[in-house]
Design a binder for these strands. Structure first.
Length: 441
DNA sequence: CTGGGGAAGGGGCCC
DNA sequence: GGGGCCCCTTCCCCA
């Protein structure tokens, strides 16, 4: 006979013990804040702690201490609360950091929930688009700045704080003298308690700010009306505002993983032009809207910081394959037939490739003699390297197999700087780069 | 301090 | 949906 409430009751008891610091035999130090927990609970919840505590299992009589510095105490609070309650308090602002921390701690369940959270937000974004379509006709007379009743019901609207009340550190909402929208996602208990960005993510926030500044006008202004009108064919499916509102409210409540969607004072999204129906996918982190899901996936990398394409020559990582290709052609293959010094057009007859560290560039024979740098012979092999990956046979010239994957040293020595494109899991490599050095005593 | 050039990175869109 | 190209903007370095 199984008593279903036993598990939750046990977890509650453990959580209570944690809160009261009863039998806690493990301390986790996160940016100076100490968290107390139970060794066995951490062991059972995190692959990372399992590894750590396994290594220190011989010293079980001693209290264990782990120190982390790359995620904030707030983030670890979310993680630890999940461990002891099974409830993950995600918001649009902490989901990235929580997922990053969970990745480091090897908590696959949390990672999955974070992914679901992001995915659900994308779905919601699409629904929001649909809702806009239903409203755009009625609101066409508005100036697009002030529509206070646009969001209601379960769609929480955050009040637009006056610009003078906010500092630049308070996120990407205030940019270039304009009030940009701020999106966040809340589980029900946290809808009014957004967590500030951690210090180490301020840079990311600034980067997002930059991105917002760039992307914001583009979705509203930089559209081509001709094409848009031709493709705006789904207006027949529009429903009235009230009907749509009800529909959205219902959908919002039934969003995957029980997340609710909260949107700030969305200036831009309230001012969609008439040709926007062709844009379908809305970024959950900014106001950017794209037509294709693949484009949104690509766009999301600028928020997540994911860079799955490392350069095999210099190690620099890129978020996009074409950027990697461009980088490799420019930096490591000297494909530009321009003398770097005098900027004149050069050929293999009038110039040569110069190797300088990991970089390659061309110099004309005249500049070459002036500079006196040793050049690489412009042989047939070098000529082949300069073939654009799009132009030639990918298998033979660009995408080399794993067996052909050579170290950079070898690449330099034999003068064949071929690019090996190897997509890697961002989280895996970056884990190694992180400076988290837990200290078990 | 400033302007120019190169590289990086983001978006649109075609194949 | 992925790959890739083109265009544009921004950042950084250097003269």
């Amino acid at each position: 006979m199984e008593i279903s409430s036993h598990q939750s009751h046990l977890l509650q008891q453990l959580n209570e013990q944690r809160r009261q610091d009863v039998f806690c035999d493990c301390s986790i130090l996160v940016e100076g804040k100490v968290f107390k927990a139970h060794r066995n609970v951490l062991f059972a919840s995190s692959g990372y702690f399992k590894m750590l505590l396994s290594q220190s299992s011989k010293e079980t009589s001693q209290p264990a201490t782990a120190t982390f510095q790359t995620f904030s105490p707030d983030t670890f609070t979310v993680i630890l609360d999940f461990v002891y309650s099974g409830k993950l308090s995600l918001t649009g602002q902490n989901v990235i950091e929580v997922m990053s921390a969970a990745s480091f701690l090897q908590m696959t369940d949390v990672i999955s929930v974070c992914k679901t959270f992001i995915k659900s937000s994308l779905d919601i974004s699409e629904k929001e688009k649909d809702r806009y379509f239903s409203l755009s006709d009625k609101d066409s007379s508005s100036n697009g700045v002030d529509r206070p009743s646009f969001y209601s019901g379960s769609w929480q609207e955050e009040s637009a704080s006056p610009r003078s009340h906010l500092s630049p550190d308070q996120g990407p909402s205030i940019v270039s003298g304009k009030l940009w929208p701020k999106y966040s996602y809340h589980t029900a208990p946290q809808r009014n308690a957004q967590q500030p960005l951690a210090n180490e993510h301020r840079k990311d926030a600034l980067k997002k700010t930059k991105h917002l500044r760039l992307s914001q006008p583009s979705q509203v202004v930089h559209l081509k009306p001709g094409k848009a009108e031709a493709r705006a064919s789904d207006s027949s499916s529009r429903v009235s505002q009230s009907e749509e509102q009800v529909q959205i409210d219902a959908e919002g409540d039934s969003a995957p993983a029980g997340f609710q969607y909260s949107q700030g004072s969305d200036v831009a999204s309230r001012s969609f032009p008439d040709d926007l129906p062709r844009l379908r996918f809305k970024c959950p982190y900014c106001t950017h809207v794209v037509k294709r899901k693949a484009d949104l996936k690509r766009h999301l990398r600028c928020h997540t910081g994911e860079r799955p394409y490392p350069c095999q020559a210099c190690g620099k990582r890129f978020s996009r394959l074409d950027h990697l290709s461009s980088h490799f052609r420019t930096i490591h293959q000297a494909c530009k037939l321009i003398c770097r010094k005098c900027k004149r057009h050069v050929t293999d007859l009038t110039g040569q490739v110069v190797q300088e560290g990991t970089r390659r560039y061309r110099l004309c024979n005249e500049c070459l003699s002036e500079v006196g740098i040793d050049s690489l012979p412009a042989d047939l092999e070098a000529e082949q390297q300069c073939v654009s990956p799009a132009d030639g046979d990918k298998d033979s010239r660009w995408h080399l197999s794993e067996e052909e994957n050579r170290s950079y040293v070898e690449i330099v020595e034999d003068g064949s700087a071929d690019l090996v494109i190897k997509q890697v899991e961002d989280s895996e490599e970056e884990e190694d780069e992180k400076e988290i050095k837990p200290n078990i005593r």
